[in-house]
Design a protein around this nucleic acid. Structure first.
Length: 275
DNA sequence: ACCTATGTTGGATC
DNA sequence: AGATCCAACATAGG
C-alpha cells in the first residue's frame, strides 16, 4: 500500500485540487467496503463542500462542511485519482465523486482491502485516536529517545514487524521498514532488546531522512501506487534495499539477500546488517 | 495449470 | 500478555 510518503503526497495534492470544491454527486459502484453503506454515502455527501484534507499515519481524513468526515484507508492497492468530466471508470473504480468544477475523484482498489468510512467529527476523532498511532515521524517532538523508549516496551519483538505496527512510529510499511533497517545497519530479525542505543539513534535518523526524501520524490511506485494525477512516484531509483535482492549492496558490494519476516518479503545485507 | 508473490492491518490463535 | 499467523481480494509471474 501507500505508506506515509505516498499518503502524504495524496493529501497535499487533494488539498490543492479538491479542498474548497463541492461534491455534487457520488456514484457508488461497489459499496461493500463503505460504511455505513454506499447509499448513505451518496445521500450524505451530495452538495457537501470539502473543507480540508488531513492525514494521520496512513489514514486520510476529508473534512466536509456540517461536521462530516470521510476517512479513507487505501491499504494495499487503493488509489485516488482526479479525472476529467465524463471519464470512463476502470474496472476497479468503486466510487466516483463528481466535483463542482466538473472533474471527478475516482476511488479505485483492485484488491478491495481499503475502505471509506463516513462519520461525524466526534466519531472520527474517536476512531483516529482509537487506532493507537504513535508520533508522526516528520513532526516536531519525534526524538530518538522517545522512539527507543516506545520500542523497548516490547523487548522480545522482532524489530521489523514492530516498526510496521504504527504504535511507535506512524506511517511505516514494508518498503520504508526495509530501507530504514538497511540504512541503520540493523538485521530485520533483531530482537528489540539486542538493539543498542547507537543503532537506535541510527534508526531514528534513517527513518526521518528516508521518509523526508520519499515525500520530496512524491513516494515510491514499486508496484501499484500512483498519485492523484495517475503519475508514479520518483523514489524507486533511490531505494537501497527494497526490491534489490541479488543486486550488490550499495555500501559493501555483497549481493543482498531476501527472507520472510512476519510474512513479508524483506531484502537485507547479510554483511552490513548483522544480528 | 498451479503455486507464489504483492505496498495492510486487525482479529484469531498459539 | 505478547508474539505470530492469516484472511479479506485480485492479478502477475515462474
Amino acid at each position: 500500500m501507500p505508506e506515509l510518503p505516498e499518503v502524504e503526497t495524496l493529501r497535499r495534492q487533494l488539498s490543492h485540487e479538491v479542498a474548497g470544491k463541492k461534491v455534487v454527486r457520488v456514484d457508488v459502484r461497489f459499496g461493500k467496503r463503505i460504511s455505513p453503506s454506499g447509499a448513505a454515502l451518496m445521500k450524505a455527501l451530495a452538495g457537501r463542500r470539502i473543507e480540508a484534507v488531513e492525514r494521520r499515519a496512513k489514514l486520510l481524513r476529508l473534512r466536509f462542511d456540517s461536521g462530516l468526515n470521510l476517512l479513507v484507508h487505501l491499504k494495499m492497492t487503493g488509489r485516488l485519482l482526479v479525472r476529467p468530466q465524463g471519464s470512463v471508470p476502470t474496472k476497479h473504480v468503486h466510487a466516483i465523486f463528481h466535483l463542482s468544477d466538473g472533474r471527478e475523484l475516482h476511488w479505485e482498489d483492485v484488491r478491495k482491502f481499503g475502505f471509506l468510512k463516513l462519520m461525524d467529527d466526534k466519531k472520527a476523532d474517536a476512531y483516529v485516536e482509537g487506532r493507537g498511532y504513535g508520533p508522526e515521524p516528520l513532526e516536531r517532538g519525534f526524538s530518538w529517545q522517545k522512539m527507543t523508549a516506545c520500542l523497548r516496551t516490547r523487548p522480545n519483538a522482532k524489530i521489523k514487524p514492530l516498526l510496521m505496527e504504527q504504535g511507535c512510529i506512524a506511517g511505516i510499511g514494508n518498503i520504508y521498514a526495509v530501507e530504514a533497517l538497511w540504512e541503520a545497519k540493523i538485521h530485520p530479525l533483531s530482537r528489540v532488546k539486542d538493539v543498542v542505543d547507537a543503532r537506535m539513534k541510527a534508526l531514528h535518523r534513517a527513518v526521518v531522512r528516508i521518509l523526508r526524501a520519499a515525500v520530496l520524490a512524491r513516494g515510491s511506485s514499486a508496484d501499484d501506487y500512483l498519485d492523484l494525477y495517475g503519475r508514479p512516484g520518483a523514489f524507486v531509483p533511490k531505494l537501497k534495499a527494497y526490491g534489490r535482492e541479488g543486486k550488490p549492496c550499495r555500501r559493501c558490494g555483497k549481493p543482498l539477500k531476501k527472507m520472510r519476516v512476519g510474512g513479508r518479503g524483506t531484502a537485507y545485507c547479510a554483511l552490513c546488517q548483522r544480528q
